[in-house]
Design a protein around this nucleic acid. Structure first.
Length: 188
DNA sequence: AAGTATACCAACCGCGAGCGC
DNA sequence: GGCGCTCGCGGTTGGTATACT
């Protein structure tokens, strides 16, 4: 059913190279903010939301594509255990990776792997991570065990924990250090 | 070679938070 | 405080590629 009203027609589906070019140009001029305005200024028949997504997941500089390394995979698993489905936070810890990519990778690879591990060892549980994810970031997080009892062993502030401003993002020492301390809580 | 199943990934949708008026 | 707009996030869908029968 064709709508010939005054409502502006919006493109959907895959982006063309021409659209990518227009978007990149507009962002170069105006910066990656005010997505609705960018969409209009670029002359794209796309909504701001769609432009933002395209930029973040595909056009942004320094995007790494494909081949998640073993080290990255390990980090994703550990962070997911810790944070639940907070993909943007997890992505923030993996330079060049997007939340969408990690989410896709999790859904297609790791969730299955997790199931297998659970069956084999009964070890992996994301329930702790999910509980953490429900809390507000400003909270001081206290892990909760399977009986709903607070574990006093590890308490940290998520804002501090995820403040990367003074840190070399390529090092994974921090997570190894942290998780070495917390594995006993999260894996038990 | 053709048909079907499965995997992968880009993109869309709905919702909530933040902000300005 | 209420409203509308924009942005960001997570969940889901749909198209394409690849593997399998």
């Amino acid at each position: 059913m064709e709508n010939k009203s005054t409502k502006k027609e919006i493109n959907r589906g895959a982006w063309t190279a021409e659209e990518d070019e227009k978007l990149a140009e507009a962002i170069q001029i105006h910066g990656p903010k005010k997505w609705t305005a960018i969409a209009a200024k670029a002359g794209l028949q796309r909504c701001g939301k769609s432009c933002r997504l395209r930029w973040l997941n595909y056009l942004r500089p320094n995007i790494k594509r494909g081949n998640i390394s073993d080290q990255e995979e390990d980090l994703i698993i550990r962070l997911h255990k810790l944070l639940g489905n907070r993909w943007s936070l997890i992505a923030g810890r993996l330079p060049g990776r997007t939340d969408n990519e990690i989410k896709n990778y999790w859904n297609s690879h790791l969730s299955k792997k997790k199931e297998i591990m659970e069956k084999q060892t009964g070890h992996y549980s994301t329930r702790e991570g999910s509980k953490l994810a429900e809390m507000k970031e400003e909270d001081h997080i206290t892990p909760i065990d399977e009986h709903g009892v607070e574990c006093s062993k590890v308490i940290f502030n998520v804002d501090e924990f995820f403040d990367f401003s003074n840190e070399d993002p390529t090092t994974l020492d921090w997570v190894n250090r942290y998780l070495a301390d917390t594995d006993s809580v999260f894996l038990s």
